[in-house]
Computed example of a mutant assay.
Amino acid sequence: MKAQRNRSQQRIIKLLYEVNKPLSAQEIYMELRQRNQALGLATVYRALDSLKLEGAVQARTLPTGESLYESIERDQHYLTCLNCGASVPIKECPVHQLEEQLETSHKFQVFYHSLEFFGLCAKCQAFTNGS
């Protein structure tokens, strides 16, 4: 059952759906300002927290500590380089079946899942190997 969303939450959901890429809270704040739908930064953070608890948005934390938010409808996963911070989206999602099994076996309602692999990209590998 979806919770009643306030106007701030609705604006953020609509924005994340339209831009179709992960955004930080600051980027959401700036993008809404550019669209003449300004919200305070604290309001953006509160709305994002509520939307995460509802399962309407997913957040992933970069190695820098910054969180990026995106619509759960995207179901996007990443390879993230620990050296340069580049994130490469991967198309495959090998955990859908596991998610369904966990929901059944643990009677746990899963809103979304996050799958991210951390390591070194080819460019950073070449640099660290001296090539």
Rank of each mutant, 00 (worst) to 15 (best):
L98K: 09
A47L: 03
T61M: 03
Q76W: 07
S8T: 00
D75H: 11
E27T: 02
C93A: 10
F118I: 10
F118Y: 12
A86C: 08
S8M: 07
N36E: 13
Q76F: 14
D75Y: 07
L120M: 06
H113W: 03
L98Y: 15
Y17V: 03
T64C: 01
F118L: 08
V57N: 00
Y78E: 14
Q34R: 09
K91L: 07
K107L: 14
T43V: 11
L51N: 05
Y78G: 15
E99N: 13
G119E: 10
L68K: 06
Q109E: 15
T64E: 00
E31I: 08
C81I: 01
E66M: 04
C93P: 15
S114P: 11
L16H: 02
C81D: 02
N83R: 00
A42G: 10
P63A: 00
L82P: 07
Q37G: 02
V110I: 11
K123N: 08
L68Q: 03
Q34T: 09
Y17C: 01
V44W: 14
P22K: 02
N83K: 02
Q97S: 07
Q9A: 10
S87E: 09
V44C: 09
Y17W: 15
L82G: 13
L79F: 13
R33F: 11
Q34L: 10
V57C: 00
A47I: 00
R35F: 15
V44D: 05
E31G: 03
Q58W: 14
I28T: 03
A38C: 06
M30K: 15
V57S: 01
Q97E: 13
R74A: 09
D49K: 14
S87P: 13
L32N: 02
L115M: 13
P94D: 07
C121V: 08
G119I: 04
R60D: 02
G119H: 11
L32E: 11
R46D: 12
S8G: 12
L48S: 02
A122E: 08
L32V: 00
S8C: 07
E27H: 01
E70A: 06
A42H: 12
Y45M: 07
E100Y: 11
L82A: 13
Q34M: 12
L41K: 14
L32I: 00
N20Q: 03
A122H: 14
E54W: 09
V110T: 15
Q37F: 11
Q109K: 10
Q34W: 03
V19K: 00
P22R: 01
V95M: 06
G40S: 08
A59L: 05
E54M: 06
K14G: 04
